[in-house]
Nucleic acid binder design. Structure first.
Lengths: 192, 192
DNA sequence: ATTCGATCCTAGCACCGCTAGACAATCAAG
DNA sequence: CTTGATTGTCTAGCGGTGCTAGGATCGAAT
């Protein structure tokens, strides 16, 4: 029994190694640089080993996305719980979200830009994704305003943040006025 | 002289053919399916011909993006000019924008998701891109609100629309309530 | 000690973006 | 009309990609 357990443990460790290595490589050099060959070389195994853990590159991206979703949820909750009052909480949420996107561009891409083969906004959506959305909802529900469905409001607010995050990072928006745009968004969208 | 002119004309026609074919192929089967081989086959020339018109695939994407920017500007202006009152104009703009993104997903990707080698939000930004932004600005400036820079407001509003467009199309947002989200966005962001 | 199954790697497939160099068509000069 | 240079296009190939078939190796159980 113990032998099998050890093997299982080692296998799980190697899977973790694959995911964290893929994430590192993606953050360092972009997802384009995350090829199965380079990834295999970094973990010091041959390519086919990757395919004994994941169906393909997509699933590896998906694994990084799930890891990122959990972290993002934590970051958002930490920021909102440290703020006083609805207005300050929403502002803290927005900053935390954009900060996460800016600090972990590759993870953010895996989550919302690339195809990681994950289901979104459905019953079979993985728990970390649901929870990340819940983290937003918890804070944003209180500023949705009368007669506005909290879920719908959260989706809309989230989409606005997502737009800011992606357009800024892709060089479509000048980065200088980022803070002002966030402030404008919070001021107008949140009902306090 | 006439011979050279004819050649120049034919060459320009072929360049148009490349761009429209790339666009067609991308809309039909996605940008992943737009390979230089397939594109060359469709225009009935060999691969190297593509490289006598464009530096590489990136520039072809960029050409599609510029074409799309011009069309989007036209669509937005048509929609806004047909509406009465600031509130209705902004709503029409939002609908026209999202409609364009939904109807021309590949073009939208070329514009705002993919790397077409174009400069954004700078002095050397190509004219069609500047003009597309100007089309948004013309309408949105009148609802920016007191003390809010029109450019900054336009950027923020645009980012929100962009977030809705991308998240909806990527399956990150349920498509049913799209109209309600747009309405919410217009109601809250636009000062009428 | 020997089987046998799990584990891993080598080698290779079809495809990608891109380019060098051969070849044919066209034009200007003698 | 015949050259020679120039232009245009194609074939073939490079190094890379994601992914997989099949053989080698190694450890556990008999």
């Amino acid at each position: 029994m113990s032998v099998q357990e050890r093997k299982q443990r080692e296998r799980a460790e190697r899977e973790r190694l694959i995911v964290t290595t893929a994430r590192e490589l993606a953050e360092q050099q972009g997802w384009d640089a995350v090829t199965t060959r380079r990834l295999a070389e970094r973990i010091e195994y041959s390519q086919p080993v990757l395919y004994s853990h994941f169906r393909g590159k997509r699933e590896i991206i998906g694994a990084v996305a799930l890891e990122g979703a959990a972290e993002m949820a934590t970051a958002v909750r930490a920021a909102t719980s440290a703020a006083d009052g609805p207005r300050a909480r929403v502002a803290a949420l927005a900053r935390a979200y954009l900060d996460f996107a800016a600090r972990n561009p590759a993870v953010y891409d895996a989550l919302f830009q690339l195809d990681g083969g994950l289901a979104y906004a459905q019953e079979d959506t993985p728990e970390p994704l649901k929870d990340a959305f819940a983290a937003l909802l918890e804070c944003l529900a209180e500023v949705a305003g009368d007669g506005v469905h909290p879920g719908l409001f959260t989706e809309t607010f989230w989409a606005s943040l997502h737009g800011l995050a992606t357009l800024t990072r892709a060089g479509r928006l000048p980065p200088e006025d980022a803070a002002q745009r966030v402030e404008l968004l919070v001021d107008r969208l949140a009902v306090v």
